[in-house]
Amino acid sequence: MTDQAYNFAYLDEQTKRMIRRAILKGLAIPGYQVPFASREMPMPYGWGTGGVQVSAAVLTPDDTLKVIDQGADDTTNAVSIRTFFERTAGVKTTTRTTDASVIQTRHRIPEEPLTDNQILVYQVPIPEPLRFLEPRESETRKMHSLEEYGLMHVKLYEDISRHGHIATSYAYPVKIEGRYVMDPSPIPKFDNPKLGDMAAIQLFGAGREQRIYALPPYTQVVSLDFEDHPFEASKADHPCGLCDATDSYLDEVIIDDTGGRMFVCSDTDYCAARQAAGFKGKDAA
């Protein structure tokens, strides 16, 4: 039931209209960071205020919402945002990727391929891929508008010179349709190949930084690299301990103080579905 003190999905209609305009502009210029008038939300910055505002603007009463945090449906961030929309929008919620029409995510893309009637909303802490290299906003905007992206490769160069390989493992910079360099939010680089040619709409919201950007369906996304050090989507070299999957991104879990550990799917829904289908890993009870 919706708390009647709130408009549908918490935000007032004029705010949602403003956010939708930013989303449409973002979809029209893939990878471009559209400034928007981010609102105070009833949660602290860093907890997904950008993603929540984007979700609020795209939700309709018929939608089914799924919220994940690092792939999991049952962690604090995911649970509180899911409850937030249950109370303020009264929409159905689910933990199953295939049943959801809107998925808000923190730092993962679900393993299950998404379809063309789904929207994926990312929570973004720092939308500017060049920020840690160039602190001036006036300068980074100019670099985007003039396509001066040499500096991004300086970062990758530094990685190789220090570690012998590109050590950036999350928030790995990508180039959109040969134009804008974009921060894909801190998803592991394992997920980077899924960004491109995706059937679903991908929306990125950064609340504190007041930026929205977007990828329309089937957009070309290229991870930056060097000719002699090509991009590699990496993951822990193990099968999942619970469902035995070898193709999913794994979390390492320390299970005792004598060096014991197990690797499990970070996508809890994917793992649960596989276990229900009878797959069993070596650590499964």
Binding site: H153, Y157, S161, F226, E227
Partner: peptide, 18 residues
């Protein structure tokens, strides 16, 4: 690093071979 400093201009004009 010193190497990155020298390489920046090369990368800015399109060098992509480490």
């Amino acid at each position: 690093s010193a190497g990155g400093n020298v390489g920046e201009r090369l990368m800015a004009v399109g060098a992509r071979h480490y």
